[in-house]
Amino acid sequence: MKKLALFLLLSLLAAPVRLAAQRIKGSDTVLPLSQALAEMFMQSRPQATVTVTGGGSGVGISALMDGTTDLAMASRRIKFGEKMKMKQSHHTPCEFVVAYDALAVIVHPSNPVKRLTREQLEGIFRGKITNWKQVGGEDAKIIVYSRETSSGTYEFFKESVLRNKNYMSGVLSMPATGAIIQSVSQTRGAIGYVGLAYLNPMVKALAVSYDGGRHYVAPSVKSAMSGRYPVVRPLYYYYDKANEARVRPFLRFIDTKVARAKTLDLGFIPR
């Protein structure tokens, strides 16, 4: 009897803590944003605890299936196979867009080329166009930089710009965005892609056209927010429908003014 009472007491004590505690896991792209938002959230609600861990989009979603996380961060949409798997174990994944991330195509500052169409970019990254002359530049070999195959940015660029086709085998893959900026800034014929937040004067961003050259749009937070800049990807949170009540306060917090300002501050585009 005493044991039961103790148990009840303990669970009563634990219940409010459990309700407020949230675990967020997944993509490393979304990680800095989630961390910043979680910190602000905890400051505004002292009783809440949010723990944020990285590991990659795939890791986050499989943690959601196991129930070891409440929110899964993903820089890509949930895959069909993953969705099926969740459905089979009677969970319904719900999607929530946290923010948008724009990718900018960058070249060396001395490069006279200012704009490219998607088709030209596809040709360059697939190795069909190998000289800047072919796209209106000077007579120089194009050096293509890309991210490592494990990165979500690599996948998104492949999906959006290359229309799911493969990069050529000779692309130089760099382990981090910083390395791409460094290399592009010191290589005259270089081309690469980075998140909008990483743009700096060491490199030049190109205007991109997705309609065959009729409209070129330069990457900026403004053009990305208005929806005119085409190379934009949503960043997602996934949660289990049964768990909605628990994650709702945090998701609602993301829509507040301070959270949106912070999102913008970190170089992401608020939802």
Binding site: E148, T149, S150, S169, G170, V171, L172, S173, M174, P175
Partner: peptide, 25 residues
């Protein structure tokens, strides 16, 4: 080294090594 997975024809080409591949992927 640039990590381009092509068979190098000269030492001035970018290339990709086994340990770098394992670490990166």
């Amino acid at each position: 080294t640039g990590n381009a997975a092509v068979i190098p024809t000269s030492i001035l080409d970018p290339l990709r090594t086994i340990p770098a591949t394992i670490a990166a992927e």
